[in-house]
Simulated scan of single mutants.
Amino acid sequence: MKILIDMNLSPRWVKLLNEAGFDSAHWSMLGANNAPDTEIMAYAKINGYVVLTYDLDFSAILAATHGEKPSVVQIRAENVNPDVIGWQVITAIRQMSVELENGALITVDPQRTRLRLLPFPTRY
């Protein structure tokens, strides 16, 4: 699985994820540091990445566009240091890899992990 790490997370995530067997890249290695989230999402979708972020905008983009891809893993914790929450994120990605391959939003916080399949249902 390929994981694209958003600018709001440390590039140190690359090493941790690569050591865990994932093919990961930090956005700073691929695009402009000030790129809008929509550009990062488009790049991830075209290139088959799952986005790892601390930013709620990515889930809002998926909801607004009824997007099926890319999958997003969002961390909801005060401390997003990979030394603190990294293994919890890796465990969630491994446990929900099929759902991520098919289109999902995973939210990881220190107490629990939540999964929502994509696209989000349309509200009437």
Rank of each mutant, 00 (worst) to 15 (best):
M29W: 10
A42H: 04
A42M: 07
Q74D: 08
A77E: 04
A60D: 14
N79E: 07
W87H: 15
A63G: 12
K45L: 07
A77K: 04
A63F: 10
T65P: 06
Y54N: 15
N47H: 13
K15Y: 13
H26P: 02
D23G: 07
S71I: 01
V84L: 01
E78V: 09
G31K: 02
N34R: 12
V51H: 00
P11E: 07
G21P: 13
T38C: 09
T65C: 06
E19V: 12
D83E: 14
W87C: 10
A60L: 15
G31M: 02
S28G: 08
V84Y: 10
W13D: 01
D57V: 06
A42R: 08
Y49K: 06
G67F: 04
D83C: 07
V84C: 01
W27V: 00
V80K: 13
V80T: 15
V51W: 01
N34H: 11
T53R: 04
S71N: 07
N18A: 11
H66A: 15
D55H: 04
D37A: 10
V50Q: 10
G67Y: 01
I40Q: 03
R12T: 07
W87Y: 14
D55Y: 08
F22M: 02
N18T: 11
A25H: 12
M29L: 12
V14L: 11
L30Y: 04
E78P: 10
N34D: 15
L52M: 00
P82I: 05
E78T: 11
A44N: 03
A35Q: 02
A32P: 11
Q74S: 13
D37I: 06
A32F: 12
V51A: 03
S28L: 12
Q74T: 15
L16S: 09
R12K: 14
V51D: 00
V80M: 08
Y54A: 15
K15S: 15
P36C: 07
V14M: 11
A63H: 12
A32K: 14
I61K: 00
A20P: 06
N34Y: 08
